[in-house]
């Protein structure tokens, strides 16, 4: 699969941005995630792969406490961001989510103008002092999401009027505008066509220079193309976690091998 990859395998740093230890998640009676330990490195794209219902999205949603919005969900264990436990009582989940941004599976632009969509985060967090600064942030974010050239003449047009791929890049720009430290992406390309997917993948690789990126994907090619680290989940367990090249070419666990060769899934 090496010919398909666009990402540089070398991981620049070995410092962990987020560390998870012994994470358990219950949805009511259902034990959805069992004892997961993962280190998310800074400046790295980490991919979570695994069959449907294996817990990878659940784990992703633990990293910015989005599971708090699900009434029946219960999270045990410890997840640290820069050494601070994010499930500590002193941590405000709202502030946490500003630091750990999220892009969803289905593009979900707000029913507002393109400009207002991107300006949403900076506005609610008071990141800019005046209109000129806000304009600058919006432009920067749209440029980073590789959408600026397509929308610069129609920033007042509704965000929902864009094509699917553009909408997803708008959502990425929206997440980037709050300048998070970690960006979580839950199957960001599953609703996109191959061209839009390629654009978003390229974008993910560029974003790595500013943030740690965690991406959940069903496409193993995508994981191989964009990530430096890959975690394989199966039935709520973290089966294997390591360098992407190693996971795909020389998996240690037989289940990982079966999955990437298409025998289970």
């Amino acid at each position: 699969m090496n010919d398909m990859r666009i990402a540089d395998r070398k991981v620049s740093t070995e410092t962990a941005k987020m560390t998870a230890r012994g994470v358990q998640v219950y949805y009511g009676e259902n034990h959805a995630l069992k004892d997961v330990d993962v280190d998310i490195l800074s400046g790295t794209v980490t991919a979570f792969i695994g069959p449907s219902g294996c817990g990878k999205s659940t784990f992703l949603r633990c990293l910015n406490r989005m599971n708090d919005t699900v009434a029946s969900a219960r999270v045990l264990g410890e997840i640290k961001l820069d050494g601070e436990n994010i499930y500590d009582k002193r941590v405000d989940p709202v502030t946490l989510r500003a630091r750990v941004g999220m892009v969803f599976q289905k593009p979900n632009p707000f029913p507002k103008s393109i400009y207002e969509n991107v300006a949403y985060g900076p506005r609610i967090h008071g990141l800019t002092r005046n209109k000129a600064e806000l304009d600058e942030v919006v432009e920067m974010s749209l440029k980073r999401a590789a959408l600026w050239n397509e929308v610069k003449d129609r920033l007042d047009a509704p965000g929902t009027g864009l094509s699917g791929g553009q909408q997803q890049r708008l959502c990425i720009a929206r997440a980037v505008a709050t300048s998070p430290e970690v960006l979580l992406m839950d199957e960001p390309c599953s609703a996109l066509d191959p061209i839009a997917t390629a654009q978003v993948e390229e974008l993910i690789d560029e974003l790595r220079s500013q943030f740690s990126v965690v991406i959940v994907t069903h496409s193993m090619q995508q994981a191989a193309r964009v990530s430096q680290r890959t975690a394989f989940f199966h039935l709520g367990h973290l089966v294997e976690y390591g360098e992407t090249g190693q996971i795909f070419t020389n998996p240690k666990d037989p289940r990982t091998e079966s999955y990437i060769t298409g025998r289970i899934g």
Partner: peptide, 26 residues
């Protein structure tokens, strides 16, 4: 749609900001 609320929460908005700026306009 819940996706609207999730999008807003995911950006670090509080519940009431989400209601004021996303849910009610929609």
């Amino acid at each position: 749609p819940q996706a609207m609320r999730d999008g807003s929460f995911g950006l670090g908005a509080t519940h009431s900001e989400t209601i004021k700026r996303v849910v009610l306009p929609a």
